[in-house]
Design a protein around this nucleic acid. Sequence first.
DNA 1: ATAATTAAATGTTATTTTAACACTTAAAAA
DNA 2: TTTTTAAGTGTTAAAATAACATTTAATTAT
Lengths: 233, 233
Amino acid sequence: MGLDYYKNHKHVLVALDCIIFGFDKNELKLLLIKRDFEPEMGKWSLMGGFLQSNESLDEGAGRILNNLTGLKNIYLEQLHSFGEVNRDPVERTISVAYYSLIDIHSHDKELVKQNSASWFSLNEIPDLIFDHEKMVNSALKMLRSKASHQPVGFELLPEKFTLPELQKLYEGIYSTSLDKRNFRRRILAMDVLIKTEEKEKKYSKKGAFLYKFDQKKYKEKVTNGDSLVFKPL
Amino acid sequence: MGLDYYKNHKHVLVALDCIIFGFDKNELKLLLIKRDFEPEMGKWSLMGGFLQSNESLDEGAGRILNNLTGLKNIYLEQLHSFGEVNRDPVERTISVAYYSLIDIHSHDKELVKQNSASWFSLNEIPDLIFDHEKMVNSALKMLRSKASHQPVGFELLPEKFTLPELQKLYEGIYSTSLDKRNFRRRILAMDVLIKTEEKEKKYSKKGAFLYKFDQKKYKEKVTNGDSLVFKPL
DNA sequence: ATAATTAAATGTTATTTTAACACTTAAAAA
DNA sequence: TTTTTAAGTGTTAAAATAACATTTAATTAT
């Protein structure tokens, strides 16, 4: 072996695909694009692109997410790399999949339109190209697992949100229904929420108090190694 | 865009690196190789290689693991892909890291010698090339997380093992000490162990009963969606 | 033969956590 | 002022957990 050992190996294309979650009208949703290019033109797929030579995998995924939503500094985590030999019919390509949680109301709707993208409820997802369905299932599993031991749910909500909204979100993530009293007790016990004096009256006459996620307290807890297990179930 | 869209992107090398865990003398260990090729000749690194065009990522990782240990059908899971731009000084390379759990006494010692590989205790790991230390830390974290909700520990032991040995293993994985009575109660409560009539007398005069892992029962439980949470702590 | 040694094996209890459950309150609308 | 709607709040029985010490089986030494 030696330096030219490297040259004797096949170089492959590296794709980055993003599973983008949002939450709207009490439902967990996914942002998909309608391909206006070959292969599989006209079919639905995850937003993706190819790794460029001047960027890391994380940076590439961030760029692709930004291209579609206009958002920066978004919750984005690597999910898994998919590398079946014939997963892309055109050419050997491995895909590094990322999943992202965004506040569905904060993205650039114009960009989304330009990319012929739309949001789909989890139970209305169309057929997807290649192995993208596998990626989505894997991401959903990951999201569930993550949400049960890290407060990631907040990433899907606007800065201020009510406890009933937060509960609906967790119910969406786990496709289940939760007891209101137990939910509130547990989520407040995590001690990373700040109650504001404002009320959101969209959903009821009484109105529900708005809360904010306490980033600072959360980071402190992480630093101290405090457990942040949140089992909504 | 179109078919030749693919051609306009840089193709990169894809490496596969294996973090190989074993358990010996009450310690969790890692199998590392001394590089006899450039770059970084003479330094320690994870066992790795490049993805070939006729194999999937999983298959490639299995091949590399087999090259070093002679073992097949080993517990092997994808960990994470590492893709910093300059992680490999020779050429842009992304590495898909896998971690593997093997019975340390079952591998081919001749092959290991040929590859100038050795086993290292976790607290005696030498400096590693590139970003391999990051990979090891990440794998250890993953192993801990996995072991707490799936009975992966058995992969690191021979077919038959005693409960004291199993406890030592978990203590190694979590770098902690556990109460014998609570440990036994919990591990047996999982109901995936078969007690044999044989005793292992290596460690005591009385001898400890040997147990086997009940693959069949385990798979049943997985199929039924039974929870298999094991919190040794 | 008996005693000493060594690690394996075993159960109980107080404490904490969890899950199940129904009424009251605030505000707007009728 | 009555009705409507969803928000907000506590208690309790059951289950899970964590803390803890003695007995047992077999070998080794006397």
